[in-house]
Write a protein that binds this DNA or RNA. Sequence first.
DNA 1: TCGCGAATACTCGATCTCGAATACCATGAG
DNA 2: CTCATGGTATTCGAGATCGAGTATTCGCGA
Lengths: 209, 209
Amino acid sequence: MTKRKVSNPLALAVLALLTERSMHPYEMASTLRARAKEESIKLNYGSLYSVVESLQKHGLIEAIETLKEGRRPERTIYGITEPGRTEFADWLSELISVPVKEYTRFEAALSLLAGLPPDEVLGLLQLRAHRLTMEISAGESALARSAEQGLPRLFSIEFEYRITQARAELTFVEALIDEVADGRMEGYEFWRRVHESGEFPSNADIFGR
Amino acid sequence: MTKRKVSNPLALAVLALLTERSMHPYEMASTLRARAKEESIKLNYGSLYSVVESLQKHGLIEAIETLKEGRRPERTIYGITEPGRTEFADWLSELISVPVKEYTRFEAALSLLAGLPPDEVLGLLQLRAHRLTMEISAGESALARSAEQGLPRLFSIEFEYRITQARAELTFVEALIDEVADGRMEGYEFWRRVHESGEFPSNADIFGR
DNA sequence: TCGCGAATACTCGATCTCGAATACCATGAG
DNA sequence: CTCATGGTATTCGAGATCGAGTATTCGCGA
């Protein structure tokens, strides 16, 4: 299976919108915003317009008409093509069914954790735990609010996912805090020594390092 | 707080490596590889060389010497500067202590879930659950293997994090599967109807849509 | 009715990212 | 000895990404 011609997830959202009805780029942006999809799909104008252009170049969408009302800039209305529908279904199917490794910033940070002394790391982790806790409760109340206003779960399931992940991260961070706090973490002695003695052992005696 | 001059996480890894000792770019790559850090920090040559150049331009690292052995391409050896050390500690601290919203593909897919009919989604989610299960056990055994070989947890903590997150996702996906399977998911009727009747209601009567 | 902030609609180019391609050398199998 | 394989070390340019900037119109309060 070869790579997709247009790979920005924003393009997927564009295809989804045009599945419902034709519209012009700016309307796509405001619709996504109104539906709070920009929470889950990064949206910025530069990307939007270039993604639309690229979709058109590849025949997945087509310009339906260009309106010029008054002296405003013209709006080009786009519609989805048959290949576009196929691509949408295929792409979305893939995203759902095959888990892909994503590189998160926190994972990168964890992999370099030893670069900071343990007591500093401890404080930073505590800060993170605190902030995560706040984010989780903010997320929960946002979710409750939209449920109250009658939005079916089908359309806010992505927020539940995010909260789930945040909770798991919080649990992980809390466990990590405990281990670092009481020095139970394997490698702790080495860790502390390296930072106290100022510098790295000329040739580290830790396996793999 | 203004943005960082060099923002690619690979640059953080470069700074971390140069904290230990000076080296040339290719050696950075192989060291990261040997330590399995490329699992957590995306590494490719193009980025590496431009990131190194950018770090140098901003005075965070400096060229120490340029070797030319035989007719091989010359290797430039880089070392970290004082501003570089500061930047490293500051950046890593930030990554640990402040949780940042990351846009994952699966979250994007979830936010567009209604674009595919429920029975298809069901099958796709089952596929994902299956693949996640396999990934989790692969990750667990990789972790066990490196522990056996004496690598302290401090240096493989990022793998534990990843497994934690994958497990949480699996739990979420399994719950979702159940709900979709028995039609308990809120909005299910609308969802099914839209796809059976071929198309979208001219003006959706679902709040926010 | 005047002015002003918000909304509409898009453009631009600097920077970043990617990974295939290049080019060389060391090793060892046949 | 010679050819293939794999490791060393980097370059290049096409394409993606970003978000501030521009230009216009609308609505509304004073």
